[in-house]
Simulated assay, not measured.
Amino acid sequence: MLSMIDLFAGCGGMTSGFAKAGYTPVLAVEWNHHAAATYAANFGEDHIRHTDIATIRDKDIPQADVIVGGPPCQGFSNLGSRNIDDPRNSLWREYLRFVRRANPSVFVIENVDRFLTSSEFALLKDEIDGYHLSAGILHAADFGVPQRRRRAIVIGSRIGPIPLPTPTHDRWHPVRAVLDGLPERPATTALPATGTDFLGTRVPGVYKSADLHIGRNPTPLSLRRYRHIPPGGGRFDLPVELMPRCWREKKTGTTDVMGRLRWDQPSLTVRTEFYKPEKGRYLHPQWEPGEHGHRVDRPITHLEAARLQSFPDEFRWCGTKVEIARQIGNAVPPQLARSIAEHLRPYLTGGAPTVPTCPLCHTFE
């Protein structure tokens, strides 16, 4: 039995993958209450702490075999201001405090790819003692996630060098693997009116995955725009009269804005506002040419985004629609986490390496 601590745990994407690989969480820390409630709904309230990580005392940090976590990355992300003085960037120091106290055999840091070239990562390498570091970029699609998502992974080991895992899949799973068969027309635009007490406060939920298949009410103008976007297309496929002025004047860049997914390819990165096509390539992939071609003109639903992130359908959710979308977009894909967990196991136990079970592979055999 291998124990783990999940820091900046979010809704539990990393814990989900590690738990599938047989690890037992003994502590998780998450500041956002709705995300912490989702974590508790799936993994129990006994070990989740809904608080600022800096308030947890050293004496309350348990020993663990592994620590995982992704310190907030707003200062490193291409989408952020990339302000190195952003106080959220220094939260990796809290991560190191937990490492020093819990004394894990291995720790794993997950972050945006720019993290590896940041001055903060250079400082981290200078401050960590007794651990051999391996760092690089992993592509989620190489590990069975139907999504193009590049993430920086750092593995620290005090039991000898541990390389990053090598890809487990020689072919990528397409969008069709997880979206095909779901109702094309969501029956509702609202989550069920229910609430639950978690961690001392009432939150919306608990919702089953099926509850997350919710639509939106796009304007007539939005619907007219959607109909012009073919699979793999984007804002450049719109007639000039349907383009807002900012798009007419900006003739380069942002190619995935107002984009449509392809059935036969993985999605692009699922971010926190996947329900807004103007934010990325989030339109449903069903589109046929011709005036009467069969088209599904809507953005993907929360359930579809969760599946693209490789969350299992048995996962449960808490929060508002916006909060759950943030949880989905910010999460480490559980299938990627499981691949990392399975890769670490033989180094931690002396056992034989195993290949993580992929729930989608049988679809294409």
Rank of each mutant, 00 (worst) to 15 (best):
C11I: 15
T24Y: 08
F18I: 01
N42V: 10
A28M: 11
T15P: 10
P25K: 04
G17W: 07
L27H: 01
A35S: 15
H34M: 14
G10E: 06
A28D: 11
G22W: 03
F18G: 05
N32G: 04
A36Q: 06
A36W: 05
G12M: 05
A37Y: 01
A41D: 05
P25D: 08
F43N: 03
A35G: 10
G10D: 11
A35F: 06
A40F: 01
Y39T: 02
F18T: 06
T24I: 13
N32A: 13
T38R: 04
W31C: 08
I5K: 11
V29K: 06
F43Y: 14
V29C: 15
A28R: 10
G22N: 12
E30I: 07
H34R: 06
V29A: 15
M14K: 02
D46M: 09
F18A: 04
G17Q: 08
F8W: 13
P25H: 09
T38I: 04
V26L: 12
L27Q: 02
V29E: 07
G17C: 08
G12F: 00
A37C: 13
G13R: 06
G22A: 11
G22L: 12
T24K: 15
G22V: 03
W31D: 05
G12N: 07
A36E: 01
A19D: 08
A36L: 09
Y23A: 11
E30P: 04
L27I: 11
N42L: 09
W31S: 13
L7F: 12
D6W: 04
S16Q: 14
Y39P: 05
A19W: 03
T24R: 14
G12T: 04
C11W: 11
G12S: 11
V26P: 12
G44Q: 02
S16L: 14
G10M: 10
T24F: 13
D46V: 07
E30W: 01
A19Q: 10
H34N: 13
V29L: 14
W31G: 00
G10L: 12
Y23F: 15
G44W: 00
V26Q: 11
H34G: 08
S16F: 14
G13H: 08
P25T: 12
N42M: 05
A37R: 00
G10F: 07
L7D: 08
A36R: 00
D46K: 14
D46Q: 15
A28G: 10
H33E: 13
G12V: 00
E30S: 10
Y39E: 10
A21N: 04
A41V: 00
K20Y: 01
G17R: 01
I5N: 03
I5E: 09
N32R: 15
A35N: 10
A40Q: 02
A28V: 03
L27S: 00
V29Y: 07
P25G: 03
G44F: 02
K20T: 12
A35C: 13
V26G: 10
C11A: 15
G44A: 00
K20F: 08
T15H: 05
V29I: 15
S16D: 13
